[in-house]
Lab assay of single mutants.
Amino acid sequence: MDETGKELVLALYDYQEKSPREVTMKKGDILTLLNSTNKDWWKVEVNDRQGFVPAAYVKKL
């Protein structure tokens, strides 16, 4: 969790967005987890953008 109590995830792999609903991340990025109710796609925030990334590409910290 960060200082505001939000849950964080670590990008395990690079991911290039394939639609406007997704976000690009690089391996090693720390992202804010917004929603993990879907087992396949998690909603995150990175670089002031919100979108989805494959759940298998990130790990909760």
Rank of each mutant, 00 (worst) to 15 (best):
A11P: 00
A11L: 02
Q16E: 14
A55T: 06
I30C: 06
Q16M: 12
K43V: 15
T24S: 15
K6R: 13
E17H: 08
T32Y: 12
V44K: 00
Q16F: 13
D14T: 06
F52V: 07
R21A: 13
V53P: 01
T32C: 10
G51P: 00
V46E: 04
V46Y: 12
K26M: 09
E22I: 04
A56H: 12
A56T: 11
R49A: 06
A56L: 11
V53W: 01
L31C: 10
K18C: 10
M25Q: 01
L34W: 05
L34K: 06
K18A: 10
R49T: 07
L10R: 08
A56N: 13
A11F: 01
D40Q: 13
A56W: 08
L61T: 07
D29W: 12
E7W: 12
D48Q: 12
D40N: 13
K60Y: 08
A55F: 02
W41R: 02
T4F: 14
G5P: 14
L12Q: 04
K59S: 09
D2M: 13
P20Q: 08
V23W: 05
Q50T: 12
L34G: 01
D2K: 05
V58D: 01
D14P: 06
E22S: 06
K60N: 07
L10Y: 10
V9Q: 01
I30P: 01
K27A: 12
M25R: 00
T4H: 12
W41V: 03
L31I: 07
E22L: 04
T32H: 09
G51C: 03
Y57H: 06
L33T: 01
K60H: 09
E7C: 13
K6A: 11
K39V: 11
K18Y: 05
L8Y: 15
Y15N: 00
S19L: 07
L10K: 08
T4S: 14
W42S: 02
N38P: 04
W42T: 03
I30T: 06
Q50G: 06
D2R: 04
D29A: 07
K18V: 08
V23G: 02
Y13V: 11
K26S: 09
V53E: 01
S36R: 08
K43Y: 15
V53L: 02
E3I: 14
M1A: 14
S19C: 09
W41L: 03
V44D: 01
T4R: 06
R49V: 08
V44Q: 00
R21T: 13
T24P: 06
G51H: 02
K39I: 10
T4Y: 13
L8H: 09
K39M: 10
T4C: 14
N38K: 07
V44F: 00
V23Q: 03
N38T: 06
L34T: 04
N47C: 12
V23Y: 04
K18G: 08
L31W: 03
S36P: 06
K6M: 10
M25L: 08
D48S: 11
E3A: 14
K6Y: 12
D48K: 10
L34S: 02
K39R: 11
N35A: 09
E3N: 14
E45L: 10
E22M: 04
K27Q: 08
P54F: 03
K59F: 10
V9W: 08
E17K: 13
V58M: 05
T24L: 02
M25D: 00
Y15W: 11
D48W: 07
D2L: 15
V9C: 13
L31N: 01
G51Y: 04
M25F: 11
M1C: 13
K27I: 05
F52P: 00
Q50F: 08
R49N: 06
L10N: 04
K18Q: 14
A55C: 07
E45H: 07
V58P: 01
D29P: 00
Q50H: 08
A56S: 14
P54L: 03
V53A: 02
M1K: 12
D14Y: 04
Q50K: 10
K26I: 08
K26Q: 09
M25S: 00
Y57D: 03
L33G: 01
Y15A: 00
S36M: 09
K27M: 08
M1P: 13
W41Q: 03
L31G: 11
V23L: 15
D48T: 10
Y57I: 07
K18D: 05
K26D: 04
A55E: 03
V53H: 00
F52M: 08
E7I: 14
R21K: 10
D48V: 06
